[in-house]
């Protein structure tokens, strides 16, 4: 429900936004919330409500894209590990352990700092960290199918591994992967906002929630809503995704 609302927002946000999110009105800077600006205006006189709404259009697609890239890389590597087995599998799993054990997002900060901020850097760094869980999920599924059907698997392997993968493993793996995917988008939203807050994610003047929180922080004592509004959006969307992800997981177990 909540997620649907946000998705809708991402699509129609620009239409229902009462003002131009980029339009500056230096005379009307830092206005209190009022009938014309329901959430007031920021330091450049931009309408906060409009910016908060339009930001969904940046955050959501970027995060879905980030999760998609992670999923793609992870599934390919997981399939490689699960099917080829042996050295490849062992190497990938150890690599995964290392990535999971490391303060990975600190590394991401270092990387983004060096590559320079922006959407490509975000996608690359998220994939660098995110592939592990997908690879593990798929690998487990492949191994399970193998165990269940170890006799047939022997000759199925002769038929052609890719065929087996597509016909037998993917249909089973798709549900856990989907459930995890939703969670992953949630983590991506939180992480992207955090990176943007640190000035390493989406760059101003694009409306993005984390960036808006950072900008609003300067005026915290007098204009708290500049910070509160985008933060609430992040938490709201995050909660929606979390609940969807959890209910998918529950349905999986049942």
């Amino acid at each position: 429900m909540i997620v649907g609302l946000f998705a809708l927002l991402a699509v129609v946000g620009p239409v229902i936004a009462p003002m131009d999110p980029m339009g500056q009105d230096l005379a009307g800077r830092l206005a209190q919330p009022s009938a014309s600006h329901l959430l007031g205006t920021d330091a450049f006189g931009r309408d906060v409500l409009s910016r908060v709404l339009v930001a969904a259009r940046i955050d959501l697609p970027v995060c879905i894209a980030a999760a998609l890239v992670s999923a793609l890389v992870g599934l390919v590597l997981g399939a490689a590990g699960g099917y080829l087995g042996g050295v490849v599998d062992a190497f990938l799993m150890r690599l995964g352990d290392l990535v999971m054990a490391f303060p990975t997002y600190v590394l991401v900060i270092a990387l983004i700092a060096v590559i320079g901020p922006g959407v490509p850097a975000i996608l690359v760094s998220f994939a660098l960290v995110g592939w592990v869980s997908y690879a593990r999920l798929l690998r487990e599924e492949i191994r399970r199918v193998r165990r269940e059907d170890y006799i047939t698997a022997a000759y199925l392997a002769g038929i052609g591994r890719p065929t087996v993968l597509v016909r037998h493993v993917l249909p089973n793996a798709i549900r856990p992967v989907l459930a995890y995917f939703v969670m992953d988008v949630m983590f991506a939203i939180l992480t992207l906002a955090a990176l943007s807050y640190l000035g390493l994610g989406i760059q101003p003047p694009s409306p993005e929630w984390g960036t808006m929180v950072a900008e609003g922080q300067t005026f915290l004592q007098t204009h708290w809503w500049l910070t509160a509004a985008p933060g609430a959006m992040i938490a709201g969307l995050g909660l929606g995704l979390l609940l969807v992800g959890e209910s998918l997981e529950r349905r999986l177990k049942a």
Partner: peptide, 22 residues
């Protein structure tokens, strides 16, 4: 648990400044 998972930490920090520190 739900709230703690989805509330961004930078935002919570600011919130604590706003409602406790200040």
């Amino acid at each position: 648990v739900l709230a703690g998972t989805v509330i961004p930490s930078f935002w919570l920090g600011i919130l604590l400044i706003l409602v406790i520190a200040l």
